[in-house]
Each structure stands twice: as C-alpha cells, then as structure tokens.
Design a protein around this nucleic acid. Structure first.
Lengths: 233, 233
DNA sequence: AAAAATATTATGTGCTTACATATTCAAGTC
DNA sequence: GACTTGAATATGTAAGCACATAATATTTTT
C-alpha cells in the first residue's frame, strides 16, 4: 500500500500551472471552481485557495468573486526588485559609504513635481540635493522634493549629517510607493556632480511615496554609470 | 454591547506594521510568537500568520522556524514590475505593433553569455536579433541567445513571422527568471537599428530564464529613448 | 420592456485542530 | 572537550467548517 502523501499547496499550484502552460487551459479560459479542483486533487479547498493565490500573485491567473478563476490573457513576467537604503547597499558590497549634502531650500513646486506628487495645487516644497559616495567616488546623486506639510519632522533634521533617504525610510512609513526606471544622458550639471562625462547614460530610479493620499516625497536617484538593478528572487 | 467586529488579517497586519514603524519594535527586535500576538488581538493564529506572511513578503520582517519573527534590520523598498509581451504592451497603449527579424544564426557561445546562462562550457547557441515597432517606429531592439538543447522546438519556428519573445512566453514555461536593468549609451550599430543618435541613453532590460537548471534564453532588450518601466501596484 | 428586488454562486476570510519541519538548546556519550 | 542525541519550540502547512462579500443570474415589479 503506497502511503499517499498529502498534496502540498505547491504541488497543486505546480500542477495547475502545468495545465495552463500545456494548454489544458488556454489564456482566457475559466478554470473549475476551487471546490471542484480540490475534489479532483483530493485535498481541501483551502489548499487550492493557497495555490490559486500564489498563481494570482504571480500574474498567471485572475480571480473574481463569483466570476471564477481564469487564465490571464496577457501573460507577464512579474519580478520583484528590492531597493535598499543606499548606505546599506554600499556597505553590503564592502565599500566605504560617504554622504554629502549639496543644497537644501524651499521652492514653489514645479508643475512636473506637483503632478507626480498628485498635489492639487502648487505649494512651497523642500528640495534637497545630495550625493552618495561609494569608496569616496560618486555613486548616486539624489534630487529630492519633500512635502513639509506631510513630513514636518524633516525640517528639524540636520541633512548635512543624515541623508533624507535614510531618515525618511526609518521615520516615515508610507502606504503607497510608485517607482519608475528610465535612462537619461547626463546633463552637464549632473555629469559634473557625478564626476563623469557629459552625455553618459545613467539609470534613473524615480520614487514617489504617499501616506494615505498625502504625498511624502519624490526622489530622482541618478545612479553612476555601471549601476545595475537586479531582481531579488 | 458594542458588537466587536472580528479583526481582519489586514487590520492585524497594519497594526503590527504601525508598531514596527513607531519603534515599538525596532529593527532587529524579535516580535512575540504568533500565538501570543493572536491572544493579544483576540484572533486566531492563522490570522496572525496571514498578516505576518504579508509583512514578510513585503520585506518588513524576517521569519524563521523556531527562530521567531524579527524586524528586518535593513528596510527595503520592495516593488513588483510587470514585463509584458512586447506586442501586448504596444497594443495596450493603442499603438500599432510591428515586428521585424534582423538575423538568426548559430554561434559558439561567447563567455559573457555562457556565464550568465550558467552554462558549464561553451556550446553552440542560437542568436536571434529582432526589432519591435510601435506605430512603425523602432520601439525595442532585442538581442537574444537561445539554448537549442533546452528548447529544440524553437528551431521549427519561423522567426520572421513570430517573435521568439512571444513564442517562448507562450510555449516554454520557466521556473526561474533573473532580470537586470541598466543604462547604456547606444553604440553605432544599436543606434542605427533603433534609428536614434549614437550615444543616446537607453534602458536595457536583460532577462535570463531557466527551466530547472537548464538555461532557456538570455535576452537583452534595448528600449528606445523615453522608455519607462513602472511598478504595477 | 426596463428597472428593481432577490436568489445564487464562487471566491474571500476567519476559526480550530492537528501535524510537519526546522532550529535551537541541553543532556548524554565517547 | 567535541560530538551525538533528543527534547523543546516557533513557524509552516493542511483539513474542514462557517460565514462574508461581491458579482452574476433570475424573478418580480412597474
């Protein structure tokens, strides 16, 4: 009598995944109800639920109450990226971290920034520019806009000693975060700051955070040439 | 008697998250056991478990069997990005999609490629170069290396009609996918292909996929200037 | 026939119990 | 003292039940 080992939710997930990939269920098709799949596999519905949630998280299927589960019509490669605090990232590589405040001042919020922060109207905003160093060489130049209404505490911080990056991450929770990656050619100013040639290709990581609907900060991180962003996995 | 509404796992999660962010539990601290937290909230352990898994997925805490749950010492911004099939992406924007095979041939695997594919030794590999168009303008230039040992089926595909991108996604499941984002200045060749100026900054999306330990493909997607990668949320 | 009320149904959530698994810690053995 | 063995423990997984919720389908009403 071969001892029937209980199916784990991962096995269920993988079998369903296989059925999708081998076209037993094609994109757009509706899968059986959880309960029926559970019967089929001889497991509990909660196990199927767990498997399905994973497939849903991975972007392979879409689930709707009453509507059932269907195979996504537009398969995507879904990846997660971790963006650590810059100091941590540099130290983890075994490099010496350095930080240098370039300037700090209040400005009337430019339209582009107000739009990205979803600010209803232009207000006064704190702009902080700083340079992160790795082994005494420029690593990331960050151009940051901070909403003082949302984060009054930042006004008391000595940003020449502590980076806004770090202070915010450690002190200001956010409920929403938008990220944007793109490449630009270094302007003369940016190039000078990063000590590279004008026109060099730079990866820019643009991040906007909110707490509820209140915008916290928008930062454009101009990474030095050679910088790479990897998926975690 | 105020009817005590049951706590949802999301409420539990948010409360724990708040406790972490307000320093009730500092980075590195050990949180109480799930069972104790459950008692504290008056809910079942499974609810705490659900909440904790979410926090763990989000990168806020680390969990280990027997070791318990502790607040991560290096908070990260964790984001998920969706990389759709190029055709879908173009069509979703309402643009007309076009595809053009540039060339296809067998080569001795260059060391850089072999390394990234984790191939033990240099073998023959299929290289496919193609251009994706949006509204008849170059959109993405892809330079792809495919392991024919892992994907013999690709040899039968008419790549001048169907893109390898699409065929692989639809026909070849992968179990592991590594992504890498970086910026480069367009070489003369790349610039000519994308019909842009030499030296323009390009965002490159490099993707490597495996099935088990068998490498499937490595593709470098050179995106046209202005291309942006956004987080899903 | 159009609109509103109602029933149906598939997924979502929560509870409880039970057992699995990975670590840690301590006792016991050589 | 170094090594092995085993107990203790916290998280991981699974079952099975009950009810919540949202979306759809059906019926009733106007």
């Amino acid at each position: 009598m071969t001892r029937e080992p209980r199916l784990s939710w991962k096995e269920v997930r993988d079998q369903i995944k296989t059925s999708i990939l081998d076209r037993t269920y094609s994109p757009g098709d509706k899968l059986p109800r959880d309960a029926d799949i559970a019967d089929q596999f001889g497991c509990a519905r909660s196990t199927v639920q767990r498997a399905m949630r994973d497939l849903s998280d991975a972007g392979l299927v879409e689930r709707k109450r009453k509507g059932g589960t269907r195979v996504r019509v537009d398969p995507v490669t879904r990846a997660t990226v971790d963006i650590p605090i810059t100091r941590r990232e540099v130290e983890k590589r075994g490099s010496v971290y350095g930080y240098h405040l370039i300037d700090r001042g209040f400005f009337k919020t430019p339209p582009e920034i107000a739009g990205k922060l979803e600010l209803p109207q232009a207000t006064e905003i704190l702009r902080v520019r700083a340079l992160h160093l790795a082994d005494h060489k420029p690593h990331i130049y960050e151009d940051r806009w901070i909403c003082p209404d949302t984060v009054p505490g930042i006004l008391e911080v000595d940003l020449s000693r502590e980076s806004a990056n770090e202070w915010l991450v450690m002190n200001k929770p956010y409920t929403r975060c938008d990220l944007r990656f793109y490449a630009i050619s270094a302007t003369e100013d940016t190039a000078a700051t990063l000590d590279i040639k004008t026109g060099s290709a730079l990866l820019v990581i643009e991040r906007t955070t909110w707490i509820g609907t209140a915008p916290i900060t928008l930062v454009k991180a101009y990474t030095a040439p050679g910088y790479e962003l990897l998926t975690s996995n």
